[in-house]
Design a protein around this nucleic acid. Structure first.
Length: 467
RNA sequence: GUCCCCAUCGUCUAGCCUGGCCCAGGACACCGGCCUUUCACGCCGGCGACAGGGGUUCAAAUCCCCUUGGGGACGCCA
């Protein structure tokens, strides 16, 4: 088998959205699995809508996701001569012709057809006129009048379309720029694309593109149309369904590994496995297990997967991802063992990096702000004794490991005749200001003796001041 | 409307190709419970689906047909 080359061809008319990212991912995983190449192609032939900001946003998103490419980026806007060259060939070989029908006439025809519940199609008025190139003329493809086109889709199976359904579509605009189907095919040919893996909203374009391949005398690539991603209301995913841009998930504290896991798993499966690392996916991904039906984007499941990935990751690998969020909260954290320990305590209770940064706050601020409710409930006069005794016990410790701290608590329990819960909760509030936190022994261990004692003393003062 | 695609719990899916192991398994969500120094994690249990109707067959979620439902495409957008 010849080399596998796929492509990801976004049009830079906006950010990289969830659906596009998924298509990119399928292509990327496919080539990673089989050792092929991925071509990145920017389809910017629509000068009106294409922007540099979009191009940058797409690169940024791809970079964050960790999707790299082997060839490109190629910009269609810079390849206009390649397209005109091929269009000229098509005209010479009788596969295309100039058309001077006005846009008004075309629109009129469309409206009329729709009014009569007919499929709107060009009536091929200029097909056999042998028109020469003139200002304002477009080039149309001379599509077959009979027979049918069969897409041998590796995902959907054979799809048969009657050629009478396909009209003489425009391949070159009156300004000389190529239309999507033309540019796409020429690029796929010149870039030696072996597999075209794209959203199934492109199925209707495929017969047209196949005709172009055939007219140019080139073998067809393998086509695979992946089902679309729909919103919760089953309509095409759009902004009103919430976060659509890939990078919004970065801002919401998601790890790209979770997004990738979620997106691939939406429409693809490997038995009952739900959790996949990147390497896992590369190892197991093939086109064989892609489903045929559209899937609904479920933010809840993505969140759950994000929590799983945070839980499973090594604390160190999380540094660069959480630190920006910590910084935003005014936490000036340093990479190292201390941060590693902190993250470890937060991993099982953080669904996002935003939550993790919030959970980390108390570690970095000795001036604990007591939340009203827990303070009222636990920082009461009867907490003074256990707090005082604990402070003394901690001061007396010669070793300050978690087990030593636990022993200290046991002695406090004996001396005060209180259950652990009665001691731990006031201490927790004293140390964190909150009623919920990681385990009390581990946070004492991480905070260190000086900080803990000082916080406890401040809490005692707080209680006394209240009385 | 025309053409095309699709159809298993609310959602993502396993099973379907190569009928029997499926009165349908897993995951998210939800509801109970356990664990426990809090919150989580974890663990256990519950809820919950083969769209409908015809065939074929000893046997159908699995094969065939029809209906219904949903989606997509119908641009000098990509």
């Amino acid at each position: 088998m010849s080399e596998i080359i796929t492509r990801f061809p976004p049009s830079p008319t906006g950010y990289l959205h969830i659906g596009g990212a998924r298509t990119a991912l399928f292509n990327w995983l496919f080539v990673k699995h089989f050792g092929g190449k991925l071509v990145l192609r920017i389809e910017d032939t629509d000068a009106e809508r294409s922007t540099q900001e979009s191009v940058d946003a797409i690169f940024d998103a791809l970079d964050w996701l960790g999707i790299d490419w082997d060839d490109g980026p190629h910009y269609q806007s810079k390849r206009l001569d390649v397209y005109t060259e091929h269009v000229n060939k098509l005209i010479e070989s009788g596969h295309a012709y100039y058309c001077t029908c006005t846009q008004e006439r075309l629109e009129e025809m469309r409206n009329k057809a729709k009014a009569q519940n007919q499929n709107p199609m060009y009536d091929r008025q200029c097909r056999d006129k042998g028109l020469e190139k003139t200002d304002g003329a477009v080039v149309r493809f001379k599509s077959p009048l009979d027979g049918n086109s069969v897409i041998k889709d590796v995902i959907k199976g054979n799809i048969v379309i009657n050629n009478t359904e396909i009209d003489d579509f425009i391949i070159l605009r009156s300004d000389g720029s190529p239309m999507y189907n033309l540019a796409c095919v020429i690029d796929d040919i010149t870039m030696n694309i072996s597999h075209v893996i794209r959203g199934d909203d492109h199925i209707s374009n495929t017969p047209k593109q196949m005709m172009l391949f055939t007219a140019l005398g080139v073998d067809l690539p393998v086509f695979g149309h992946v089902p679309m991603v729909l919103g919760p209301d089953k309509s095409r995913l759009s902004k009103r369904h919430g976060a659509m841009s890939v990078t919004e998930y970065r801002e919401m504290g998601y790890t790209p590994d979770a997004l990738i896991n979620y997106l691939v798993r939406l429409g693809w499966s490997h038995g009952d496995q739900e959790f996949f690392t990147r390497d896992d996916l590369i190892e197991k991904f093939t086109l064989d297990n892609i489903g045929k039906s559209a899937g609904i984007f479920n933010p809840g499941k993505l969140l759950a997967l994000n929590a799983d990935h945070i839980k499973e990751a090594s604390p160190k690998s999380l540094f660069p991802q959480v630190m920006p969020f910590m910084k935003e909260k005014g936490i000036d954290a340093e990479e190292g063992e201390h941060l590693e320990n902190i993250i470890e305590t937060l991993q099982p209770r953080s669904k996002t990096f935003i939550e993790m940064a919030e959970g980390a706050e108390f570690y970095y601020n000795d001036e604990v702000v007591f939340e009203e409710k827990p303070a009222k409930k636990f920082l009461k006069p009867n907490a003074i004794e256990p707090l005082t005794v604990l402070a003394e016990e901690l001061k007396a410790l010669t070793q300050f490991a978690e087990s030593d701290i636990e022993d200290a608590f046991k002695r406090v329990m004996e001396k005060t005749e209180l259950k652990l819960g009665k001691i731990a909760q006031p201490v927790r509030v004293a140390l964190t200001g909150k009623a919920a936190s990681p385990g009390i022994f581990e946070i004492i261990d991480i905070l260190g003796r000086d900080s803990v004692v000082s916080r406890i003393e401040k809490a005692i003062k707080f209680i006394n001041a209240k009385v």
